[in-house]
Design a protein around this nucleic acid. Structure first.
Length: 934
DNA sequence: GCAAGGTC
């Protein structure tokens, strides 16, 4: 800032912070807590601090107050605020303004009163884009009552004495570009959110019988650029789980027990999906089961403490360690912050400023009965426990990482959640400034018949931070000592099977992670978006994991079927990039707004044309109602043109309760305009498009895509017609003459080709309450639980494996349910057929059909119901059995190592059963041979 | 009855 000349009369300076706590702290620092007076403001929370200060030699009488976040809200003007006042598409252009909402009026009043008395205004808002935008809101309010104000911006990134004084002495001007970027976001969020929310709510709410309780709340099917991608993550994972087809794999497991203990050796190949290959390798090992130690490596390993805590980490860890929801975490954290026990809880920063006195925070914790002794050792230089914390690379330049600010052994008013969260913040902080845990690791590799196995042993040499950070552990076990070149016989060598499992549903921690990576929401709002999913009945939380409801899944499915990625995070990411471009001056605010809104409007109109996709998706899960209010969009109407009679309101396309279409003035019946165009009664569908008629004036007159009922129009007319009602369209005129208008049809002639069956079709097709399934026509389950619906019809995205129609199911040897023949579509096994249990709880993989033993010479390659696992592996016929590979070739020229017969391999040897342990779900062949005894 | 962003 320019110097203002020294001395002279003191000027009055109004200082405004983003929150009361900052006003208080900064006032304390600048006044050095001397001569400070506190006045009440109009608002209960926002006090006014008065003190004297000198800025670049200029004496200042400082008035320091605050707002509470944004002072203003963006809103549609007048009639557009009412849901039925306009077509939702109008919201892309409807006039908007910023205003101070009711609950902020007292803050505005304080600012106005103070601003009138001052010459300068200094803005101490947070140093981020939102802060800059709030700064301009404050400027607007203050300038309205005092246009002479000299306006300055203080830049500070932490509430540290030196930095605050520096900020006060180096005032700059507020940055309009930063603020513009936020204006862009606000406007886009409002227009997209309101238009899509009204559209889908009015379209679907009454059209379906939502068979869940709304707890007396009004059902709103909201859309938002943050909430929908958050829902998208939940649904996508759910689909991934549904699409998962378990695949069996095989691995060789080796263990060795000596006087010193047991070592479990893992196969370096991990596991193989090819059974035959695994058996071959296993046979080789089992035939020459001498293990030779090929490598012994001992090294020191460090396990580092976590980075300092930011909001997302706090939420994730509270969810993981205590199963606390992010919403509850933030509520408790806010309370702890308000009462002074922890620092500001909404921060992206995960590294401490070098100027922070880290030790003083530890000193305070020395008194604690549980972790106090650790804090004492931490401060003792001879313990060597201290370590300057490493940073995680994030810095919002406004707040430090979350850390304890005041010692407490636990307050009497604290809930269990308060205690847990305070303990987490303290222990996390102590861990951050501690040395990493030290472990001694021993890796031993052995070779058996050319196959490599390895075992890991670990002992913890120094726990260090793990002593205080009880939430983390570092498992490890001792293994016997081995020497390079040493040979031994394994205690057990088994071929084991496993089955690939689908990923779990998203936990809150996973969801926060997805949002963080995709840039959905901010640290202060992420938990709100998650909560919104449950509030809107889009998702439920079960055992700390999120699962989409039918409603949530159907909405995502509907948009997905339209081909839109409105439920994916890309839109938000693009907006974020545009905002950055605006904030650095690379793009202009109005250009970004215009482009984005134009694209979104086109998308909205497209979505409306394709609304049948939404209906189809919801019909899968819910019954249709007979209520005509279901398609409010049509009842309200889509804009066709400005009314050419009253010249005030709009002419809109409407669908009447009897299914006929008409175009009427929006002013009717409230106002007197009765302008109406009756459309042919033969129309089955009509949707206003974005195409503007080039002939009709005054424009724009939007063309309408009509669909006619074939039997009700002459054969030489097309059933599809892009028509205009402005007077230029001869086809429309002829069709109106031929089939009459909807009005005449309604009163005189019953419409042809129409019955009352339409609603009942849906009722019977989708009634989930019935005991008989509407899809497979079997009793005992509803269609929503029908397997065929789950795997194919209901979710077109889970067709990674297709059920084969032509083959009969076989009984499951595990659960008694039915196993059905499927075709794999995985990369490694594409086209192979296999049996798999259809029971959701069982998921038993039976076998690859092409690997099932066949009778030599019989030539049959058809699938049998034999299960390898059951030990009835076709081996009853003695040596008359062989294995065939997927290509039909013999897999090996080797003899059976059990009986020596060259016609088969050991897996199907008739003598094998004598050596087999009873089949279990995880161990197939072992322990095959007790090697020590052998 | 709509969004997301501040914050109390």
């Amino acid at each position: 800032m320019a110097a203002n000349g020294g001395g002279g009369r003191a000027i009055r300076v109004l200082n405004v912070a983003e929150k009361p706590s900052v006003a208080k702290t900064v006032s304390g620092i600048l006044s050095m807590n001397q001569g400070i007076r506190i006045r009440e403001g109009r608002s209960r929370y926002n006090k006014i601090y008065e003190f004297n200060y000198s800025i670049q030699g200029q004496s200042c009488q400082m008035m320091f107050t605050s707002v509470t976040g944004h002072l203003m809200e963006m809103e549609f003007e007048g009639r557009y605020r009412k849901w039925h006042s306009c077509d939702p598409v109008d919201l892309f252009e409807a006039p908007i303004h910023k205003h101070v909402p009711e609950d902020k009026l007292d803050i505005r009043k304080t600012l106005e009163e103070e601003a009138r008395k001052c010459q300068w205004l200094v803005l101490w808002l947070d140093c981020d884009r939102e802060g800059e935008n709030i700064a301009f809101e404050v400027v607007e309010v203050c300038s309205n009552v005092n246009s002479q104000l000299n306006i300055w911006r203080a830049h500070f990134s932490s509430l540290i004495e030196r930095e605050i004084h520096q900020a006060a002495q180096q005032l700059a001007r507020p940055n309009q570009l930063f603020s513009d970027a936020v204006d862009v976001r606000q406007e886009i969020d409002l227009r997209i959110g309101a238009s899509f929310t009204r559209f889908q709510t009015m379209l679907l709410k009454d059209a379906f019988d939502f068979n869940f309780s709304t707890d007396g709340r009004n059902l709103v099917l909201s859309y938002g650029p943050c909430q929908f991608p958050t829902l998208g993550f939940v649904v996508e994972r759910y689909w991934e789980i549904q699409a998962h087809e378990p695949e069996e794999f095989w691995k060789i497991q080796c263990s060795h027990t000596s006087d010193e203990g047991t070592a479990n050796f893992n196969w370096m190949r991990g596991h193989l999906f090819d059974y035959t290959c695994a058996v071959l390798l296993y046979e080789m090992c089992a035939q020459e089961p001498i293990a030779t130690v090929t490598k012994v490596r001992q090294q020191e390993k460090l396990k580092y403490p976590p980075h300092p805590l930011n909001t997302i980490e706090l939420e994730k860890r509270a969810s993981r360690y205590f199963r606390m929801s992010s919403e509850q975490t933030m509520k408790i954290a806010e309370d702890l912050y308000q009462s002074g026990f922890i620092s500001y809880p909404r921060t992206e920063t995960d590294s401490f400023s070098t100027r922070t006195d880290l030790r003083i925070l530890v000193q305070e914790q020395q008194e604690h009965p549980v972790w106090g002794p650790y804090a004492q050792r931490l401060l003792d230089p001879s313990s060597g426990l201290w370590r300057n914390p490493s940073g995680g690379g994030h810095d919002d330049k406004a707040h430090p990482p979350i850390h304890p600010t005041k010692f407490s052994p636990g307050e009497s008013r604290w809930s269990e959640d308060h205690k847990k969260l305070y303990e987490l913040v303290v222990r996390h902080y102590l861990a951050c400034v501690s040395q990493p845990a030290v472990g001694a690791e021993t890796t031993v590799e052995i070779d058996i018949a050319g196959e490599t196995f390895s075992a890991l042993g670990r002992t913890i040499v120094a726990k260090n931070y793990l002593e205080v950070y009880r939430f983390e552990s570092w498992g490890g076990s001792l293994i016997p000592n081995y020497m390079f070149g040493q040979q031994f016989t394994p205690t057990s060598l088994t071929l084991e099977s496993g089955i690939t499992r689908p990923p779990p549903l998203l936990s809150e921690s996973d969801l926060l992670d997805c949002m963080d990576k995709a840039g959905i929401g901010t640290d202060a709002t992420m938990h709100d978006h998650i909560k919104k999913l449950t509030d809107r009945f889009y998702a439920i939380k079960e055992a700390s994991h999120f699962k989409p409801t039918n409603l949530g899944e159907a909405l995502v499915m509907g948009y997905d079927d339209m081909g839109y990625e409105l439920w994916k995070p890309y839109l938000r990411s693009m907006m974020e990039e545009d905002m950055k471009a605006v904030s650095v001056g690379n793009k202009r605010k109005y250009d970004v707004l215009a482009t984005c809104l134009q694209q979104m409007k086109a998308c909205f109109l497209d979505a409306r044309v394709n609304k049948a996709k939404l209906f189809q998706a919801l019909e899968i899960f819910f019954d249709r109602t007979n209520r005509t209010g279901g398609d409010d969009q049509h009842n309200h109407g889509q804009l066709v043109r400005k009314c050419d009679v009253c010249h005030d309101s709009d002419l809109v396309l409407r669908k009447k309760p009897d299914g006929k279409f008409m175009i009427g003035c929006l002013a009717f019946p409230q106002a007197s305009c009765r302008n109406v165009i009756w459309l042919p009664g033969s129309i089955s569908e009509a949707v206003v498009t974005t195409t503007v008629c080039s002939a009709c004036t005054p424009g724009p007159v939007f063309k309408i895509q009509f669909t006619f009922r074939r039997l009700e129009i002459p054969p030489n007319f097309n059933v599809h017609h892009l028509g205009c009602v402005g007077g230029c369209d001869d086809i429309m005129r002829q069709l109106t003459e031929v089939s009459g208008s909807g009005y005449r049809n309604f009163s005189n002639t019953p419409a042809r080709g129409r019955g009352t069956a339409a609603p009942s079709r849906n009722n019977s097709q989708n009634n989930q309450q019935q005991a008989t399934c509407n899809f497979c026509h079997q009793t005992g389950h509803s269609s929503s639980d029908c397997y065929s619906l789950t795997s194919q019809n209901r979710n077109p995205r889970s067709q990674r494996v297709n059920s084969s129609n032509g083959d009969s199911p076989i009984p499951c040897t595990t659960c008694g349910s039915l196993c059905i023949l499927k075709t794999a579509n995985t990369e490694s096994n594409r086209g192979r057929k296999f049996y798999s249990c259809q029971s959701q709880g069982c998921k038993f993989f039976v076998c690859w059909v092409d690997s099932i033993p066949t009778t030599r010479g019989g030539g049959s390659s058809s699938a049998t119901t034999t299960s390898r696992r059951s030990g009835r592996g076709g081996g009853q016929g003695g040596g008359d059995v062989r294995f065939v590979s997927a290509t039909g070739d013999p897999v090996s020229g080797r003899s059976c190592f059990i009986c020596g017969d060259p016609s088969h391999i050991a897996n199907v040897c008739p003598n094998r059963e004598m050596t087999l342990a009873p089949a279990t779900s995880s161990t197939v062949m072992g322990p095959l041979v007790d090697m020590q005894a052998a």
